[in-house]
Simulated scan of single mutants.
Amino acid sequence: MEISPLLSPAELLKFMSILKDARNVVITAHRGPDGDAMGSTLAWADYLMQLGKRVTVVLPTPCPDFLRWLPGAKRVLYYSKDEMRSAATQAVQNADLICLLDFNALHRLQDFAPVIERSKAKRIMIDHHEHPDTSCAQFIISEPKASSTCELVFKLIYQLGGFEKMTRSTAACIYCGMMTDTGGFSYASNDPEIFIIIAHLLTKGIDKDKINRNVNNTWSENRLRFFSYILTEKLKFYEDSRASIFTITREEMSRFHYIRGDAEGLVNEPLKVKGMRLSISLREDTEKEVVRISVRSVDDFPANALAAEFFNGGGHFNAAGGELPFPLEEAIKTAERAIAAYADKL
């Protein structure tokens, strides 16, 4: 089985022309970068640097600690950090090409969005979320059926003839993004081509078992106790245990010495209950007066539709998110209304 081309011949020529004309490139991804955002930006940066481009990865906010091992992560600039904001802004001002990876609209960049909007550089988008904003880039690669943006980056590099020179570091970043965005290939990963890509990545000498350990086996004692506390004390079930809600307050995060990424994967835990269809997490943001919301579902329950209707958000069919204003108590009521409204789908 061959790797299917991502672009038509005409699209490929146009894309190659855009890359050829670029000298200074900025790559960015959504706020709160996850494994796919980090993996795809770093892998794409590696490829472009092989082409002789000057590349800067600028992200709106820092990644979780468990992704800092990724090759190239130390070079990333974070716009939210005071000591990096000037350099990040200057990189965008100097850019003649901006690559938007793993998000479908500029508002996903939050405070960093105006900096991108002011730039006169050309923009390309590579993403797998539904409903891309076609006005925010001159060239858009949007494949909602793809497992991850990392899958798209691999296929793009492959079609551009870059696989032979792909480094182990690039391959590790791509594998990490594909692994994390599919829950270790437990969802959104039934396409046989995904595993053909993994086979290709393994030929580059990556240690997929170590990548898994780097991401999943680096918990602190505080994080383990935090998970236990939330699941024991804060988890509430609804609709005959087919839906659940849990909340996380600032006080609880302080009590358990929460660091960025400590809640990663927590919203998936209730789905391990037999018959569970929907899990909703409500977390008080530590920097803004908003409640961050994560929604996960299984089978044919539309998490993205629920998030769009009730939480000012969206995302994938079974994995979505959003946000609501303070206070948390009102967000809980909204989540309960959402469950009641979608009860016939549970």
Rank of each mutant, 00 (worst) to 15 (best):
R242I: 09
K210I: 11
S189M: 04
I245Y: 02
S189P: 01
E193N: 07
K236M: 12
E239I: 07
D207Y: 11
I248D: 02
E252G: 04
F226T: 00
C176H: 01
I206S: 02
I230N: 05
M179N: 07
T249D: 06
Y229W: 06
G162E: 00
A171C: 01
S220K: 07
I230K: 10
T182W: 11
I198G: 05
V215I: 15
K236L: 13
E251N: 10
R223H: 12
R168Q: 09
L160V: 04
T167K: 03
S254Y: 11
T180R: 09
G183Y: 08
F163M: 04
S228F: 12
Y229K: 10
E252A: 00
N222C: 03
D181Q: 03
F195E: 13
I198N: 02
M166Y: 00
P192C: 06
L224M: 14
L235K: 08
V215M: 05
I196D: 15
R168G: 13
D191W: 14
N214C: 09
F227H: 06
F163Q: 05
S254N: 15
S220I: 02
E251H: 06
T247P: 02
E193M: 10
R250M: 05
Y258A: 14
F237W: 13
G161W: 11
A199Y: 11
N214W: 06
I211L: 11
E251F: 12
Y258I: 11
A172F: 00
L231S: 13
S244N: 01
N212H: 13
T180K: 04
F195T: 06
E251W: 07
N222I: 01
V215F: 14
A199F: 08
N222R: 09
D181F: 09
K210G: 01
K236S: 15
T247F: 01
R250Y: 02
L160W: 01
W219C: 14
S220G: 10
G184E: 12
F185T: 04
F185P: 02
E164N: 10
T247L: 04
I259P: 12
R242T: 15
T167Y: 07
Y187K: 00
E252I: 03
E252T: 09
R223D: 02
A243L: 04
L201Q: 06
S189W: 05
T247V: 13
G177C: 05
T247I: 12
R168I: 13
T249R: 07
N190A: 13
E221H: 14
T249V: 08
D191M: 11
L235E: 05
S220P: 08
G177S: 08
E164K: 10
D240P: 09
D191V: 15
F195D: 14
